[in-house]
């Protein structure tokens, strides 16, 4: 083997990929040639240093926020699309909301226990007009809801009550956001439909709570 041939085979040799016959020729050459011996030693040193490179290198700066922003951008059109579909489905829901609400009202009224004071069906008072008209209307609606919830509390596990309250808070926060959106864009039918759907969820949840407390 010539020096040039050794140099050409060195990668495969160091990687253990050189056929045994060639490897033997290479070893024979290297034993008698200083230059190639140094080259082979350098190749092994390089390989050992490369093997010692860290597997993990932390980025010098926080990169997650940039990723989160891009994920948001990905989600935005998908959410809008979902929303349109929901909007179509809610056309029916909007038309029948009054019926559902009335049904829930009477269900709640005739529920497990008859109660004095504000009926759990207070959600009905929380119309978009009330919501848009003043915060006072919204606050009263919430107060009534909580009063209704208190009526059921004794019959329910604290855990259940906590979950219900958390969910109410979430729904209320969503409701407030939607209200301000409706104020900015009163002609947007999607916003109104969403608001109605939100009320529907409240009714459904309160009805479920009353049902649970009745069974308990």
């Amino acid at each position: 083997m010539t020096c040039q041939e050794v140099l050409e085979c060195l990668d495969d040799y160091v990687d253990g990929q050189l056929p045994e016959d060639d490897a033997r020729e290479l070893r024979e050459h290297v034993e008698s040639c200083c230059t190639c011996r140094e080259e082979e030693a350098a190749a092994r040193v390089l390989a050992s240093h490369v093997a010692g490179l860290p597997k993990s290198v932390p980025p010098a700066r926080e990169l997650w926020p940039g990723i989160a922003v891009r994920l948001d951008a990905l989600e935005a059109p998908r959410r809008a699309w979902k929303f349109r579909v929901n909007g179509l489905a809610l056309l029916t829901a909007a038309a029948t909301l009054a019926v559902i609400a009335a049904g829930a009202y009477s269900f709640l009224e005739g529920g497990a226990a008859r109660r004095d004071g504000p009926a759990p069906g207070i959600v009905l008072s929380s119309t978009p007009a009330a919501c848009l008209g003043s915060d006072a209307g919204l606050e009263q609606a919430q107060a009534e809801q909580l009063a209704a919830l208190r009526d059921c509390e004794k019959a329910l596990a604290p855990q259940t009550i906590r979950i219900v309250r958390e969910n109410l808070d979430i729904l209320d926060a969503a409701s407030r956001t939607l209200c301000s959106a409706i104020e900015e864009d009163p002609a947007n039918p999607h916003l109104m439909l969403r608001w109605m759907a939100l009320q529907q969820r409240k009714i459904g949840m309160l009805a479920a709570v009353v049902r649970l407390s009745g069974a308990g």
Partner: peptide
């Protein structure tokens, strides 16, 4: 997994700026 992936991006790209973009 960011550290492992960043090491890969940094070595393949050869500079931190491209590596950050590629990691994201």
């Amino acid at each position: 997994h960011a550290g492992r992936a960043y090491a890969l991006c940094l070595r393949l790209a050869g500079n931190a700026h491209d590596a950050e973009d590629l990691l994201q």
